[in-house]
Amino acid sequence: MRGLRASRARVPAALADAGLVAVATGDAWLAVWDTSWSAVALAGLACAALTLRRHLPFVVVLLTVPGTLVADLVVAPLAALFALAERSRDRRLLAACAVLVAAASAAPWPWHDPESRDRTWTLIQFVYTLAGTAAPVLLGQLVQVRRDLSQRLAEIEEAREHERALHAQAVLARERAQLAREMHDVVSHQVSLIAVQAGALQVAAKDTEARQAARTIRSLSVSTLDELRNMVTLLRASGGRATELTPQPTLADIRRLVATSGIDAELTGRLPDAISTPAQRAIYRTVQEALTNVRKHAPGAGATVELWRDGDDVGVTITNSRPTRPSLPLPGSQQGLVGLRERSEILHGTFSSGPTSDGGYRVSTRIPAQPK
């Protein structure tokens, strides 16, 4: 199956169109070779229109209807219905096109006033033809769903890889932080005691060799303390992302957060750098959580991050547009939004979130610029 998909991907679009038009032309020739020139022209139009099925599938369906009405065409109308069903999500339109093609195929031509017996057979033929036209519609919808599912699975796998990388970095950061604390609290303390005891021995010793040995021990202890401090600094700085031992994010980090969010996001507005550190951290976490939710629950949507100031209050509003692709039902506990609301209330601010009128979502936080 994988080899078949790879071979289909390697076939040029122009060659595939030419092959389909050739098959449709052969089918049309068998249907119209002994009819009028008008029927031949309409059948030819239906076959030629298949070259536009990738860009104008609905128009192609309409162009195949006249040829289907005057001749018993099979390939052209079914291929047009499949192309439309593969690209359109409007099921009412698909049903209407399937009925239209079935009616054109079943209707007698040239038109005359049929007897009751003929009407019955026309109705029976319409029902059977409708079943035939439903097949490419269902197949096209299946191909569309499979394509969407493959895309979502790829996105989910990418998100999982990202989460695994973040988890590995967090574990590594915690281990380095614990090692740094142990080195600082235990090893450095003990080496400091050695240096103090060596200094006391250097002062109290009467023997020249003993004083020289104490001086050497004290010098080595001080040098070891300097090396330990450097190692602790390196461990604290090598965690990758922010940990409890590294500086917390501020307003200066929001631009980089928006740029690396993985979605089409725009940052507008500006806030003064003089606002309190807790307020800066709350605004950063609000933007981070909102963009994460857009990536998870609104695939293909764009977002706008607006920083603003209103009197003594500052805030941020994140608004995303309507998703362009259907999203799979991913698990979510809403704890991220609850945490943002609690953080805002602790800082005597307000938090709001909810859907917009155009199918998007909006998250907003208002916080006093300085603590009350």
Rank of each mutant, 00 (worst) to 15 (best):
R2N: 15
A6G: 03
S7C: 10
D17I: 05
G19E: 07
L20R: 06
L20I: 07
A22T: 11
D27W: 01
W29L: 14
L30Y: 06
D34A: 13
T35S: 15
A39R: 02
A41F: 05
A43S: 11
A49N: 03
L50D: 02
R53F: 04
R54I: 00
R54W: 08
F58R: 12
V61H: 01
P66K: 02
P66V: 07
V70C: 10
A71D: 08
L73E: 00
A76F: 00
L78I: 02
A83E: 03
A85D: 05
A98C: 03
A102M: 04
A102C: 05
P114S: 11
D118T: 08
R119D: 02
T120C: 00
T122G: 12
L130T: 03
L130C: 06
L130Y: 08
A131F: 14
T133E: 04
P136V: 05
Q144P: 03
V145D: 14
L149N: 11
L153V: 14
A154M: 11
E161N: 08
A165I: 07
A170S: 14
L172S: 15
A173L: 01
L179D: 12
V187I: 14
V187W: 01
S188Q: 14
S188W: 01
L193K: 14
I194N: 03
G199K: 02
V203R: 11
V203H: 09
A204H: 05
K206P: 01
E209A: 15
E209R: 15
S221F: 03
S223L: 13
R229Y: 03
N230R: 12
M231C: 13
T233M: 04
L234V: 13
R236P: 00
A237N: 12
S238P: 03
L245W: 04
T246G: 07
T250C: 09
T250Q: 11
T250R: 15
D253L: 10
R256C: 13
L257R: 10
T260D: 15
S261M: 07
G262M: 09
G262Q: 08
D264Y: 04
G269D: 07
L271V: 04
P272Q: 06
A274Q: 12
S276I: 10
A279H: 09
Q280H: 10
R281P: 01
R281E: 15
I283K: 05
I283N: 06
Y284Q: 02
R285T: 09
E289A: 13
L291P: 05
N293W: 06
P299Q: 08
P299M: 09
P299E: 07
G302T: 14
T304Q: 11
D312N: 11
D313L: 13
V314N: 05
G315V: 05
V316Y: 04
V316A: 02
T317S: 13
I318Q: 04
I318M: 07
T319F: 00
T319H: 03
T324K: 04
L328E: 11
L328D: 06
P329D: 12
L330I: 12
P331W: 06
P331Q: 08
S333M: 01
Q335K: 09
Q335A: 13
L340H: 02
R341Q: 14
E342V: 02
S344E: 06
L347T: 12
L347W: 06
G349M: 05
S352N: 08
G354F: 11
T356D: 10
G359Y: 09
R362E: 09
R362G: 00
T365R: 07
T365C: 12
